[in-house]
Design a protein around this nucleic acid. Structure first.
Lengths: 207, 207
DNA sequence: CATTTTTTTGACCGATTGGACAAACGTTAG
DNA sequence: CTAACGTTTGTCCAATCGGTCAAAAAAATG
């Protein structure tokens, strides 16, 4: 029995995109369980049955969203390469991660929500793909340390610290804004953050 | 018309405690909107109407939980004091925050959930109490810098970085465990984290 | 003991949930 | 025009939601 996998029409492609965009808004703000497909449908400007014509279920939307997210999310780490100058490499990794927090805060929050809830849907990816990738990058960092190019430190916790500090500006955005007050509006805080984080990480890794 | 505010009986005190304990489990794992009072009642080992005998509503439980949380959560920052030796003071603040991530991960996740969802219930506290407290501590740090006791850096982003890195071990626990793998089980990762974070922050603040 | 007060629960309510379905609509190819 | 196909929605469903209520059970009080 061959299930004819007909290609998506142009309209299907477009509508699916609109739905995913709306779902990213809703899911990232309320978490999966805290969101309703009515809300997503409203936000996408269509009726609930119409939305369910393009996605079989709420889970299906979330799964599609999550699959894309992981692609985007791993990209900066994939680019992290064995370079001549570790400081530039680490510095640009920090900058890339910070830019993602600035430009894709909803994606960051969607990911944070999933992890906070115990990562039920992406545990396999965390223990597989992600772990292998981090292991590989940790080896690169260790080699730099052994070669005396940067100070010795636990490479895994170094990576965790970079993740935590950069994603903080997306996930805890309202707190950051509340504490900084109205004086430091706009995107200025990201420039300050970039300066500080480079000083923090590169400063402590200097030999 | 005087509403007689009779004191809580022993049983009321105990049952409310049991409910709050169960609610902390449920709310921290699923967020407020993603949780149900049936779930909390089940987890507390009582029927839903019985739970609603002790708390007027779902909101009421969450509000009570949140009020207590903020007390606990600000404690380490309140202790942060103008000391002779900034390095010891900052170091022990990091250690206290890390201990809280280890010993009260549910509280950390409850707070993270609230912030992620835009902090609708605690925005006032963020812009009021918290901001004032952080302003005060930032002034202390700036004085240390002016006195040449530690290297110059943005004190606000320094505090953000300490929050982010320490709370990461509670909020992103499953990711940390997945990446570190089964080799580093138990609480060992917290000791590694403590060592790394002290090196990171104190290293970069050395004059 | 009897009585009063506190605690517990089964049954129920209207609203909302994720989802099914058939009918209606729009578009396009012959 | 019409038949075929893709799209949209009104209506409906069982399950679950937060919450009420009266009545039963248990504890405290006299």
């Amino acid at each position: 029995m061959t299930t004819t996998a007909r290609p998506l029409t142009r309209i299907q492609q477009e509508k699916r995109e609109i739905i995913l965009e709306a779902a990213l808004d809703v899911f990232s703000a309320n978490g999966f369980r805290g969101s309703t497909i009515d809300e997503v449908a409203d936000s996408a400007g269509m009726s609930k049955p119409n939305l369910l014509y393009y996605f079989r279920s709420k889970e299906d939307i979330h799964a599609t969203l999550m699959e894309r997210l992981l692609h985007t999310w791993l990209a900066p780490l994939l680019e992290f390469d064995d370079a001549d100058d570790p400081m530039t490499e680490i510095g640009s990794y920090i900058r890339r991660k910070l830019e993602m927090a600035r430009d894709f805060p909803r994606e960051s929050r969607l990911f944070a929500n999933e992890i906070l809830q115990g990562a039920p849907r992406i545990m396999g990816m965390l223990e597989g793909e992600l772990k292998e990738l981090v292991d590989e990058k940790a080896r690169i960092i260790e080699n730099w340390m052994r070669a005396g190019k940067i100070a010795k430190a636990d490479p895994y916790h170094l990576i965790f610290a970079i993740w935590a500090t950069t994603q903080h500006y997306a996930d805890f955005d309202v707190q950051v804004r509340a504490v900084l007050g109205p004086g430091r509006d706009g995107e200025g805080r990201f420039e300050d953050a970039a300066r500080f984080l480079e000083q923090l990480f590169l400063g402590c890794l200097k030999v």
